[in-house]
Design a protein around this nucleic acid. Structure first.
Lengths: 227, 227
DNA sequence: CCGATGGAAAGTGTCGACAATATAGCCATC
DNA sequence: GATGGCTATATTGTCGACACTTTCCATCGG
């Protein structure tokens, strides 16, 4: 039923490049040469340019006129800033989800949670990341706010994933995060906008602090190694 | 001292098109024909395409593959969604500004406020819009968060302005808005993050409600006219 | 008279070539 | 030996032409 729009060559190249950048195949800081990429992907430079433009609007690469594009550098500061934006946007998403989600959607969210519970109990913690993403996606969709949805799913989430992959943040935090998810769904279920937003913001804050802690630990051990 | 980067033809065309779209010279819903625009602006289609791509990433136009681009349609729902995003992002910006602005920047904000006070007292209410934008810009900059700043100044603000211009929301609300601004600066001055965010969110909520009211009134009078 | 089919016409997607700009390396000069 | 300017090279920016898709309209069949 979904009117599937045609996929152009530029689209495909964009998706490929994005995947490679997010997954770290093309490391952070790499120069993206148009001529090089056009031979590698067997398309014209025009296609590559369009793909790079779109990567730029996702903030995955930075371009300078007459110089070229490079994959964004990953910094601790950048990650913190990203989580600050996430906190604001996803907090609002949770608030709006509590207002706008249908009862069926909420039911589906509960089902997803139960499924996760079974998996976590069964020790399949490797499902955690995908499950976490799925959970957040549903709430974002539930906000029914197009701007919010686009910003998060087309922009921020790929950036967050890039950081997680390349800084090696597969992260445990499984059981606590699960409880936090449960409480958020509870608040949405009760149509308590205030609480839903607050809990989502806390959830993301905890996640950020967890990552900051890890970065600090790594930095510490690196210093010890160097000494 | 600012290393001014070279401005390409695509840049210029982008700026021109954006201005024309935001100011309503190119009305909402208009089809943007690449061939037509390339003759009008005397540049190649490649340049036009790049400009349109960038307009799309600002969400000022929408593109469909093999069909073309049109200026986004303005709807009441869209405006509300925009303000919801603004509330989330600018609320966070105010919180971060309370944390990160320098004392000098805060002093500058106070000076700006006093200047506005003089102008408002003198009845120069036509300065309101520019002053309002300036006020919000400074707080956004004060957040020291690059992502936040880019999202707001490169994306949302142009969209908001587009709505304001084309739906004729030059809006009074001068004196009340001025008081709200004053209280926000006060909170930032006191480094009260919590309060700064709350006041900014309220400020934007009020602004949204004011606009919703106007839209409702217009719709009402339109119905009466038609009857 | 209405719907389907076919084929122009117009528009977008892609390409290779040329122009303009930045970078690197070399030589001359201080 | 270091610095400044110049040339050579490589890369990006821009262009016009061609390929493909969509859209519109006329024609045909029911």
């Amino acid at each position: 039923m979904l009117s599937e729009q045609p996929i152009t060559s530029a689209d495909k190249t964009f998706f490929l490049l994005r995947r490679d950048i997010v997954e770290g195949v093309i490391p952070s800081g790499t120069k993206l040469s148009e001529t090089e990429l056009s031979t590698k992907y067997a398309v014209s430079r025009a296609v590559i340019r369009e793909a790079i433009n779109r990567l730029e609007s996702c903030r995955l690469v930075e371009r300078k006129a007459n110089v070229g594009a490079r994959v964004v550098a990953l910094t601790a500061q950048g990650l913190i800033e990203l989580y600050e934006v996430r906190e604001a946007l996803e907090g609002m998403a949770a608030r709006l989800a509590a207002r706008n989600m249908t009862d069926q959607e909420i039911e589906g969210l509960n089902a997803l949670l139960n499924q996760h519970f079974q998996e976590v109990k069964g020790g399949e913690s490797y499902y955690q990341e995908a499950g976490d993403v799925d959970f957040h996606y549903r709430i974002i969709q539930g906000s029914k706010n197009q701007h919010l949805t686009n910003m998060l799913t087309n922009g921020i989430y790929h950036l967050v994933r890039m950081y997680r992959v390349q800084l090696g943040m597969a992260g445990p935090r499984v059981t606590t995060a699960f409880d936090e998810h449960r409480h958020i769904v509870q608040a949405i279920s009760n149509r308590d906008e205030e609480l839903a937003e607050m809990l989502m913001r806390r959830h993301i804050t905890y996640s950020r602090k967890n990552i900051e802690q890890k970065l600090a630990d790594e930095a510490g051990s690196n210093r010890r190694q160097q000494a």
